[in-house]
Computed example of a mutant assay.
Amino acid sequence: MTNLIDIPTARPVTPLGILTKKLEAVVKQANQHQDLSAELVAEITQAWELAAGIDPYLEECTTPESEALAALAKITAKESWGEHFTVGATVRPLEQEMLSGHIEGQTLKMFVHMTKARRVLEIGMFTGYSALAMAEALPEDGVLVACEVDPYAAEVAQQAFNESPHGGKIRVELGAALATLEKLATAGETFDLVFIDADKKEYTAYLEILLDTNLLAPQGFICVDNTLLQGEVYLPPAKRSANGQAIADFNRVVALDTRVEQVLLPLRDGLTIIRRV
């Protein structure tokens, strides 16, 4: 398993992680105020303990990641991502927090097993953690097509794929996601499971092309990442970033679309599962 001592601590980017960090600060302040009652300090401390204990307990109770995934997580965490930028319509720095991680990776891997998917499409690969996790669950003749806009991230991912016995199932498509989806649709490709984790402002466009073409198999499922977007989607609009507003708008579109049914799970930064009705 990954040696967490050697990995830089990632900043909190999930609603739970942010809440835990804020509660930790409140506990420290509370303990410095002698005028607060012991009962109040104890209540605040318990609230922090309840929040802080969830993620470690989930890690403990979930099947460990493979050695290949642990190595990839370690490489991703050690990389100086601030020196690299995505290419495309919007240039922005890459960051280690883009990696899906152990719990979400194992969840996606389980979905592949549960749905018996043979063909998977990933929109937004980064360094390939979730792609490799899902590929580990695919049958030997299974195929995962991973779309990635950034060539450096794709290079890191491909190196990891080359070292895994499951990496041969993965085909990387480098370029803007919407253009890649159009190409795949024109080529008549179809997928049993689709994982969306790319440009948040294009989520609705990704969904539309999946539903309007044959890219999504009739009984296929779509999994969409970051649909809680650090809690911004349920905070007042004035407190939302551009991405937070984009995801809030996407969630509303999905909720009103009579062609699908969906469930939003509070997994990591939010994971929505969608299927055609």
Results as ranks from 00 to 15, higher is better:
A133E: 11
M134A: 10
M134L: 08
M134H: 08
A137F: 13
A137C: 11
L138I: 11
P139R: 12
G142C: 13
V143C: 14
V143F: 00
V145T: 06
V145R: 09
V145Q: 03
C147H: 12
E148C: 06
E148R: 03
E148D: 04
Y152E: 01
Y152N: 01
A153S: 15
A154S: 12
A154Q: 00
A154V: 06
V156R: 04
V156K: 09
V156G: 05
Q158F: 02
E163V: 01
S164T: 01
S164P: 01
S164W: 02
P165G: 08
R171M: 11
R171F: 01
R171S: 12
V172G: 07
L174S: 06
A177N: 04
L178S: 14
L178N: 14
A179R: 12
A179C: 10
L181E: 07
L184A: 09
T186P: 00
A187K: 09
A187W: 03
G188N: 03
E189H: 14
T190N: 04
T190D: 03
T190F: 02
F191T: 05
F191W: 05
D192E: 06
D192T: 03
D192Y: 09
L193H: 06
D197F: 01
D197H: 01
D199L: 07
K200Q: 08
K200G: 08
K200W: 06
E202C: 11
E202T: 13
Y206D: 03
L210E: 04
L210M: 14
L210A: 02
L211H: 07
D212Y: 10
L215M: 04
L215Q: 04
L216S: 08
L216G: 08
A217C: 11
A217Q: 15
P218Q: 14
F221G: 01
D225H: 13
L228Q: 12
Q230H: 09
Q230C: 15
Q230F: 08
G231S: 09
Y234P: 00
L235P: 00
P236M: 05
A238S: 15
A238V: 12
R240G: 02
S241T: 12
A242T: 12
N243F: 03
N243S: 11
Q245L: 14
I247C: 05
I247F: 01
I247T: 11
A248C: 13
A248F: 05
D249F: 00
F250N: 02
N251A: 06
N251H: 11
